[in-house]
């Protein structure tokens, strides 16, 4: 016996059945059992004029004429648009699946190397680590390519996928730290202040060869330009005076960036100033002659 089949018709019938989901199985069978053969007949009879139309409309017509309650899964323009967008997103996700497989391998490496073995480096720094990363990525890709339908494979794989997403949080934290460090360094360089080991030199002391402290007010470079000016209550660094008018939160953030560890906040009543606004900045010295920043904040 030769079975005549047409892929388009087979798919159309499958979609009609899908649109009838929710109906009694016997009803669906009654309505669609011979549908493929009937459509093949119609195709043969109509030739080039043969058109299948929308399977959801077809299913709705079947139900309506069969006098059955409920409706085939149809929707308005919004529903069709939503399905269309969802379909496009799904197709896109399917295309980039290989990227996810590689990413999952990297996350597996992160889980083992970074989380479980408490290694400090995100990126492998030796041959063994590189080898482990490569093996995990290849394994992840191979599992993805196998695309097994077995639940025994899919269930643990789903768990691993969730784990990979969770582990990616470590990378996010790492990226956030890198970004914060970059911003901090930018702020330090932009401040024009003297830096030593990426920290602001807030106060400098000069000593002679006998260890005797000398008066010192400025440090100049070879061209005579001032690169450091000893701060005093009178010569406030411009970056600090710039804090006036800012909110306390912003001011503390800037001071944190600039490594000012000693900050004192003095709340004072101010007229026509929004509470929490910095109204004055002072540089003071404690009993040990260590400078600290005093922020006067409107209460």
């Amino acid at each position: 016996m030769t079975i005549v089949q047409d892929q388009t018709i087979t798919e159309f019938v499958a979609r009609v059945k899908k649109a009838l989901v929710g109906q009694d199985a016997n009803v669906v069978a009654d309505l669609t059992d011979n549908l493929e053969a009937d459509l093949l007949d119609r195709q043969s009879a109509e030739g080039a004029a043969f058109v299948l139309g929308d399977p959801r409309v077809f299913a709705a017509e079947l139900l309506a004429s069969a006098g059955l309650s409920g409706s085939a899964r149809q929707s308005g323009p919004l529903g069709r648009f939503t399905r269309s967008v969802a379909g496009a997103v799904w197709r896109f996700l399917k295309v980039i699946r290989p990227a996810w497989w590689v990413f999952r391998g990297l996350m597996a490496y992160t889980l083992i190397w970074f989380v479980l073995l408490h290694q400090e480096k995100y990126i492998p720094d030796n041959a063994g680590a590189w080898l482990a990363l490569m093996v995990l990525i290849i394994a992840s890709v191979q599992v993805g390519r196998a695309n097994s339908r077995k639940w025994a494979v899919r269930a643990p794989l789903a768990l691993l996928n969730i784990l990979a997403i969770l582990v990616s949080g470590y990378w996010l934290v790492g990226f956030t730290q890198v970004r914060d460090n970059y911003q901090r360094m930018s702020a330090l360089f932009d401040s024009g202040m003297l830096l030593q080991h990426a920290r602001v030199v807030q106060y400098a002391y000069a000593y002679d060869e006998n260890g005797k402290q000398l008066p010192m007010s400025t440090i100049r470079d070879g061209s005579g330009n001032i690169i450091f000016e000893q701060p005093s209550a009178e010569t406030l660094p411009s970056v600090l005076s710039g804090l006036i008018g800012n909110s306390l939160k912003n001011a503390v953030g800037v001071l944190g960036f600039l490594d000012y560890q000693n900050v004192k906040i003095d709340y004072q009543t101010a007229v026509d100033v929004k509470p929490g606004t910095v109204t004055d900045v002072r540089l003071s010295f404690d009993a040990m002659d260590v400078p600290y920043v005093e922020l006067v904040v409107a209460k």
């Binding site: 009803v27 017509e61 004429s65 059955l68």
Partner: peptide, 15 residues
């Protein structure tokens, strides 16, 4: 006449 209409009618008459 639509074929779906006829198929549905057949099912209804049978039922």
């Amino acid at each position: 006449i639509g074929d779906a209409t006829v198929y549905g009618t057949l099912r209804r008459l049978y039922a």
